[in-house]
Amino acid sequence: MAEEEVPSVSSLFDKYLKLYEAVENSDKPTNSEELQGQIKEGIDGLIKTTVLVSELGVFSGNEKVDELPTSSLKFLLLPVILGSLTLKRTDIERREVLRLAEVYFRDFVKRCHNYEITDVELAKEENNEDEEDEDEQKKDKRKVKSPVKKGMPTPEELQAMARQREDKIKRFREQKALGDRLVELKKALDNPSHDEDTFRQYQLTRLKKFVWLSLDEVESMAMEKKMLEEMARMRLEGTLPSPDNPRPTPTPLKPILITRDAVQKNVFGLGYPSLPSMTVEEFYDQRVRDGWFPDPSKNSNCLQDRATLGPEAEREREEKEEEQREREEEEDNPERLQRDRERDEWRDDHRRGWGNTYNRS
């Protein structure tokens, strides 16, 4: 009987494995009717296949992976595929989805560890959620009493976070290496002349990759369960609105109008001393009257005035300056003599080049 049913079980498994791969690679929304129909079909078929494998006694608890035939290795994937499909179900409550999926993933990792395919072990569950005599409301009340930790993490928690980060990096690298190895083995299997050892290595590598996938899914589900528990606690306390209650209508926003006076106030500071009281020309004339700036009508010796003068006017100006200088020398102007003496004394005490002691050429 076993010899007649093993091939049918193998073909049945291959059928639903292709259905699982089609669901994983589908770009349709998870809650679409078509995809949910495929998920339900795959779960029902894989459950039947699991029952047939159990009835045939394909696996034994006292065997190791070396004692298993290559054709039976793929049946170890049954629980992990069931867990992946169960996570995508939307027809039941999310807590129940997480509970069922975690049972499948933990069973797969435990089997692979028992058969020495991997040395990875999952931590034990924090609480037992299989208590049927406790309704959901009592569970929620019990979870409310659990204190929520707040504040900065302790040094021990920081060390645990660092170890967790290193484990995730290591896991990611191993997953990538296993993925690359699977691609190589898949190409080798496409060759019709591949040997049995290549096919066995492919099966074992695929199992190891699904082990790491199960670890990621279990960690993600643990975080999601904490979120669901926190949301349930907030609903009991009344801090989280129920999805059945309609949201309050928000207050309509009032339009903001920018007037001319508002613009002037922002630019000039209307109503404050910063408002200008005179123009630039008026300010300059005021400074000229106060004696701060020279009077441009009396002094035309600036560079700007010289640039506006023509060549003849420039020569006339130079001739007038020369005549003024000669006249002062002939009349022995005391102010000029005093200025010349001071200049000569300064030059005697400050010879040219004396100050250039650090940058001599």
Rank of each mutant, 00 (worst) to 15 (best):
N301P: 03
Q324R: 14
D107L: 11
E184D: 06
K28Y: 14
A188V: 01
D119F: 01
K18E: 12
K88F: 00
L228I: 12
I43A: 10
R181K: 09
R343E: 03
E41H: 14
I47S: 04
E323I: 09
H194R: 04
A262T: 07
L158G: 01
V23H: 02
P246S: 12
E134H: 05
S32M: 13
V97W: 11
N31E: 13
R111Y: 00
E321R: 13
S274N: 08
P294S: 14
P29M: 00
K265I: 04
S297I: 04
K209P: 00
E116K: 11
A162G: 14
E3S: 14
S84F: 09
C302P: 02
A162D: 08
E329K: 10
D244G: 05
R336F: 14
P294W: 12
E55F: 05
D216S: 12
D340R: 15
R142I: 13
P311K: 15
R339F: 13
K110D: 14
P7M: 04
I117P: 01
D244V: 09
E55P: 00
E121S: 10
K145P: 01
N333W: 06
K186L: 08
D195K: 06
V148R: 05
K265Y: 03
A123F: 08
E132P: 03
D167S: 06
F75D: 00
E63K: 10
R339A: 15
T308S: 08
V288R: 15
F199W: 12
E34H: 12
R94Q: 10
L309D: 11
D195R: 01
E96I: 10
E196G: 03
E224F: 01
P334E: 13
D135K: 00
N114I: 05
W354I: 07
D130H: 14
S193H: 09
K28L: 15
I258Y: 13
A2P: 00
W292T: 10
N301E: 12
K168R: 09
E322M: 15
L77T: 02
S214N: 06
P248A: 05
D195Q: 02
V288I: 15
S32E: 13
R94A: 05
L82E: 03
T86D: 02
T90W: 03
M223C: 07
M227W: 07
V53D: 00
D290C: 02
N301L: 13
Q36G: 13
E55V: 08
E230S: 09
T154R: 11
V58P: 01
G271N: 08
S10Q: 04
R89E: 07
D190C: 04
K15F: 06
P246I: 04
R111Q: 14
D332C: 08
D91W: 06
L204A: 03
I92A: 11
F283M: 14
Y284F: 10
R163F: 02
E134P: 01
V23G: 03
N299S: 07
L189P: 02
R181T: 05
L182I: 01
N62T: 08
E326S: 05
E33M: 07
R327Q: 10
A222F: 03
H194I: 04
D119G: 15
R233Q: 10
P311R: 13
G291S: 07
P153R: 15
G269N: 01
E229K: 14
D340M: 10
E129S: 11
K150Y: 01
P79Y: 00
S146Y: 10
L19H: 02
L87W: 00
E132D: 12
R95L: 02
K209F: 15
K265G: 09
